[in-house]
């Protein structure tokens, strides 16, 4: 009987512990294409779409508000705060690149996307990154390089 009580108590304790386990925030979480915002008639739908770490999601929501007011610099501020939490999250870098393009900072967009490609672990995600990269390259007049990125997307899909 005593054994049973002790065992039950131990089990309860272990269950309690498992509920309260704290998981670290991955610098490079497993991100897929579902974490990217969708496109809607040639425009990015909303910056806060997809499932994210709660802190990143909160910053995406603020960035989306700024986007609706067309305050691109402000949106970039929130996205960079998200980047500091998960610096290798390709979905964050993608959004930063998209906002940079709105600010006519195509070179920065290109570099952010190249960095995102290093951390992308999913082919579909990489394809989306390459498509935006092609736009960033086009905006700088690098049409050959842009075409090359588009061809890679076609050949891999």
């Amino acid at each position: 009987m005593v054994r049973l009580v002790v065992l039950a108590a131990l089990l309860a304790l272990l269950a309690g512990c498992s509920n309260q386990a704290v998981y670290p925030v991955a610098m490079q979480p497993e991100v897929g294409v579902e974490q990217l915002p969708r496109w809607h008639s040639g425009m990015l739908a909303a910056l806060d779409q997809g499932q994210h770490h709660p802190a990143v999601a909160a910053l995406f929501a603020q960035a989306e508000q700024a986007r609706q007011q067309r305050q691109w610099q402000r949106a970039l501020t929130y996205l960079d705060q998200a980047r500091q939490i998960q610096p290798r999250n390709a979905a964050i870098l993608y959004r930063q690149a998209w906002v940079s393009l709105q600010l006519n900072e195509a070179n920065r967009a290109e570099q952010l996307l190249r960095r995102a490609l290093v951390f992308s672990q999913q082919p579909e995600l990489s394809q989306r990154l390459r498509l935006l990269l092609a736009e960033a390259l086009d905006a700088q007049g690098k049409s050959d390089a842009a075409e090359q990125q588009r061809r890679r997307v076609v050949s891999q899909s």
Binding site: Q73, L76, D80, R83, L112, R115
Partner: peptide, 20 residues
């Protein structure tokens, strides 16, 4: 990271700059 005026207006904010 950022510069604001005395009444809180943002003058500039800086984000990551990287070149491969």
């Amino acid at each position: 990271e950022a510069v604001t005026t005395v009444d809180g207006h943002t003058l500039s904010s800086y984000a990551i700059e990287a070149e491969q």
